[in-house]
Design a protein around this nucleic acid. Structure first.
Length: 636
RNA sequence: GCCGGCGUAGCUCAGCUGGUAGAGCAGCUGAUUCGUAAUCAGCAGGUAGGCGGUUCGAAUCCGCCCGUCGGCUCCA
């Protein structure tokens, strides 16, 4: 008698050891048809697994989040089968499920997206046939014999223990695989091959170059459609496209990876930084600035010469080696050390919007997201170890405030001591405990990445979530137990003795360039009023009204509004269209009526027009809206 | 850096298998003076990313370089 316990506490007894299928059928046939796997003690197994002992089980249906990985891994097998049919000389390597789908790395001749249709057709045939996946445990010798002509598979088998090796078969296809898999291929209701790229065997450039073919798969055609729609939406919001269309920034061959900000882009940039400064001033920061080029001695002292050289740019001045700074911290250390500090000065919050250069590989450059020159909204906070918790709590609150202004949610990740690290156990313990205590008192949930900290200290990373649900790591709070030591920094305590300060590096935006790019995509180019390059566009209805429009514009400008008059001799409709397309939040049409009454016809980006708004009311509301840096424009 | 795709007017793109470059938008000029998403006409604009090669002839084929896009962490 085998007793199976369900998640709701119900227990069912089976005379003979049941398989997952039999357990599912004991509930109902309809339910069983939707089950794809069985989960016991956190492990996901095939439906065909037979349970020889009493155990708690959870049946995974197509609705459960765990199911999609099984589906995609199976889809990878189906794709591999299709490819072997079409390219018999191909050698398979690995084919896992990944975040948005799956891939298979295959040693074969070049494939292009034009080949996808044939592969997909072949896959469809396998799916239509509803081929069952069968697991088979084989001995190492059998596996080696089966794969005698498959060098990659042989290499993998070599690393596996005899007795733990399994094959999965469906139709005429067999693959070395741990599983689990779908009951049969028919569960793959929707799939699509997405792209090909090169990848190295085991991710090592010295190894053979493989073809990595990516695909995605879903249990429901609607889900695939939604995913493709998401990709389309992301394409539509692409900051590189919008940046060019809205005249915000550009890139030039003469400086790859280094953005040029246009006049309109700088308006947004400055709005962003004005806001940043307001918040930091209120939070007790001072702003500083350090040089871009510093000599070799400094970088040797900071450790960058040894550890970060590959990413740095160098130059020589009067026969001395200099480096262009890739980080602001060493300069910040010199600055702190340039005068004596009392314990009364602490915490000293020393901010710097510093321009740094990093030599990123040419292939990884990506618009404003990955550049070679960018500004960090850095700050170095010097304090006593007793102040860690309170200071970090204040920082978390500052970050939350700032992200909230853009309507960005976020989550937190704590990274602890890595294998390779400096500092004593005691230092790490107090530092990590300080971070954890701050996180606990902050109250928001956080993930822990064990061993993922920097070599010089533990850290908290803040990952923001944009309008499309994508996450980006922007903010970081890193405790540094190395630099104050290396630069022999100290403050004078109440006891009149020298003490080593505890230091943190932190950012909110991270890279301002990258954050700018994220905001463009988050808002789809439609910035909130306070950030908009042009806030108000005035459209005189005919030439005679241009002087009046100019006069209104001047009045608005006196109140600090960024307003323009479109006095071209184009049709009103055309000017409206262009104002809307360039995402100008407020379009004011001025005609005889408005001039006589001193009112405005206000058009917002939702296409709604409100007539007869008095100039006073307009100014009052708009200025308040901007002052408060509101997100939604619900003025009229 | 590596693999693959792409690079034609400021922008978006066309130009079948090699025969010597075209459209829309933008720009300029003129007409139109317009009440809420493109008025009309004309003009001008390209050493086809760069260099080299094949060919009687190259935007088109080949090679190298530059730039750009996707990927290069996920481990059967």
């Amino acid at each position: 008698m085998i007793r199976i316990t369900f998640p709701d506490g119900n227990i069912k007894a089976f005379e003979a050891p049941p398989t997952g299928f039999e357990i599912a059928r004991s509930i109902s046939e309809g339910f069983a048809r939707n089950c794809v796997a069985v989960k016991i003690n956190g492990q996901i197994l095939d439906m065909s697994t037979r349970f020889e002992a009493d155990t708690p089980v959870r049946l995974i249906t197509t609705k459960d989040p765990e199911a999609i990985e099984v589906l995609r891994h199976s889809a990878a097998h189906v794709m591999a089968q299709a490819i072997l049919h079409l390219y018999p000389d191909a050698h398979l390597t690995i084919g896992p499920a990944v975040e948005n789908g799956f891939y298979y790395d295959i040693d074969m001749g070049p494939v292009s997206e034009e080949d996808f249709a044939r592969i997909e057709a072949e896959m469809k045939a396998a799916i239509k046939a509803k081929l069952p996946f069968r697991r088979e445990v084989v001995s190492k010798a059998e596996a080696v014999d089966f794969y005698r002509n498959e060098p990659y598979k042989l290499e993998m088998i070599g690393e596996l223990d005899d007795g733990t090796i399994s094959f999965y078969k469906h139709g005429d296809f067999t693959d070395l695989c741990r599983g689990p898999h779908l009951p049969h291929t028919g569960f793959i209701k929707a799939f699509k091959l997405m792209k090909v790229s090169g990848a190295y065997w085991r991710g090592d450039q010295n190894n053979a170059q493989l073809q990595r073919i990516y695909g995605t798969a879903f249990f429901d055609k609607k889900d695939l459609k939604a995913y493709l729609h998401f990709l389309e939406e992301a394409r539509r919001r692409n900051h590189r496209k919008l940046g060019a269309a809205l005249d915000l920034f550009s890139f030039h061959d003469e400086a790859p990876g280094m953005p040029f900000f246009h006049a309109k882009g700088m308006v947004v940039w400055n709005a962003l930084l004005d806001y940043w400064r307001d918040e930091h001033r209120a939070a007790g920061y001072v702003e500083t600035k350090t040089p871009i080029t510093l000599n070799r001695t400094l970088w040797e002292r900071s450790g960058h010469w040894e550890n970060y050289r590959e990413n740095m740019y160098f130059t020589a001045i009067d026969e001395t080696d200099y480096a262009i700074k890739p980080m602001n911290c060493p300069g910040g250390m010199l600055l702190f050390g340039s005068r004596r500090h009392s314990y009364r000065d602490l915490p000293l919050r020393q901010a710097e919007v510093g321009l740094v250069h990093r030599h990123e590989l040419s292939g990884v450059l990506n618009g404003l997201f990955r550049v070679r020159a960018f500004h960090q909204d850095d700050a170095h906070i010097f304090m006593t170890s007793e102040q860690i918790q309170e200071e970090i709590l204040a920082l978390l609150q500052l970050e939350e405030r700032i992200y909230g202004t853009f309507g960005l949610g976020f989550h937190l990740e704590l990274s602890t001591r890595p294998e390779k690290s400096i500092g004593t156990d005691h230092q790490w313990e107090t530092a990590t405990a300080g971070l954890e205590a701050a996180l606990k008192s902050y109250g928001k949930e956080y993930l822990v990445n064990e061993g993922d900290g920097a070599f010089y200290g533990p850290k908290i990373d803040l990952h923001i979530k944009d309008a499309l649900g994508r996450t980006w790591q922007c903010g970081t709070i890193q405790l540094d137990m190395s630099l104050p030591e290396r630069f022999d920094l100290f403050y004078v305590g109440q006891d009149n003795e020298k003490h080593r300060p505890t230091m943190i590096h932190r950012t909110v935006f991270g890279s301002i360039e990258r954050f700018f790019g994220i905001l463009i995509e988050h808002f789809a180019g439609r910035f909130p009023l306070w950030m908009a390059p042009v806030q108000v566009c005035l459209l005189p209805i005919n030439d005679e009204l241009v002087p009046y429009a100019d006069q209104v514009r001047a009045e608005l400008a006196e109140h600090g509004l960024r307003a323009e008059v479109d006095s071209r001799t184009e049709s009103l409709n055309k000017k409206i269209r262009e104002a809307q397309i360039s995402q100008i939040p407020l379009t004011l049409t001025v005609g005889q009526k408005e001039m006589k009454a001193g009112t405005l016809a206000v058009r917002t980006l939702d296409g709604v027009v409100k007539h007869g708004v008095t100039q006073e009311a307009f100014l009052k509301r708009v200025l308040a809206h901007i002052r408060e840096r509101k997100l939604e424009l619900d003025l009229f």
